[in-house]
Design a protein around this nucleic acid. Structure first.
Lengths: 106, 106
DNA sequence: TCATTACGAAACCATTTGGTTGCAAATGTA
DNA sequence: TACATTTGCAACCAAATGGTTTCGTAATGA
């Protein structure tokens, strides 16, 4: 099983859960109330996100509050930075072509 | 089948392909040469990315050059913005708690 | 004309995914 | 103590995923 933040973001339900937990920690029941799927289905999503260290749990009596480990999202940003860096290479290559065309003219 | 940019990014091979195509368009064979999997496996990844409109093809004789539709990546950035906005709400709530504590002291 | 090359499509397979229902354990409450 | 609530875990299922091999077809070049 692949377990990284990209995998966590791949499912729309998980993305919605992440946006909710970004505001404040919640219990599985409270999260499940917001969706049309079963509590257990939500629990599975929570498990996936826990496995990629996006979530931390805090037991309070019989309730478990899930907190978002927001820093993990930086991995996405890091990749996006890498992506933009590659894009800039494209333009560098274009520049080279233009320079070569210029030299041919001479 | 879910077909969005998040899905496209979920697989590490696809992420690597995207980074390559960000620099310049490539043919399926040229892409496959960079990986240990079969050309057909790469073709499947290309298909997934095409279906979520991340790729555009340009036929040149018997070769097909796949170009990256880099703008599509903005959907990821858009979601990340939304995420950060939610995170900021968390601090607004914290501020409220502090204000309430202050008022209780009086 | 004919072999080669580049590619997509199809069939197949094991594994993963996203969902379900049922159950047991732990905790809080009457 | 008895009962209700919150939760995780296991079993199960259909569909999707990521890979393979095989085949068909269109363009290239000798």
């Amino acid at each position: 099983m692949r377990r990284d933040v990209f995998q966590a973001l791949a499912d729309p339900t998980r993305r919605a859960i992440i946006l909710m937990l970004a505001v404040s920690a919640m219990t599985p029941n409270a999260i499940a109330d917001q969706f049309d799927i079963s509590r257990q289905a939500v629990s599975k999503h929570i498990k996936v996100m826990s496995e990629c260290e996006l979530l931390a749990q805090e037991q309070k009596g019989r309730e478990i509050y899930y907190h978002l480990h927001a820093d993990k999202m930086k991995e996405i940003e890091k990749w996006l930075e890498q992506f933009k860096q590659q894009i800039s290479k494209r333009f560098e290559q274009l520049d080279e072509v233009l320079i070569q065309l210029k030299q041919k003219k001479k």
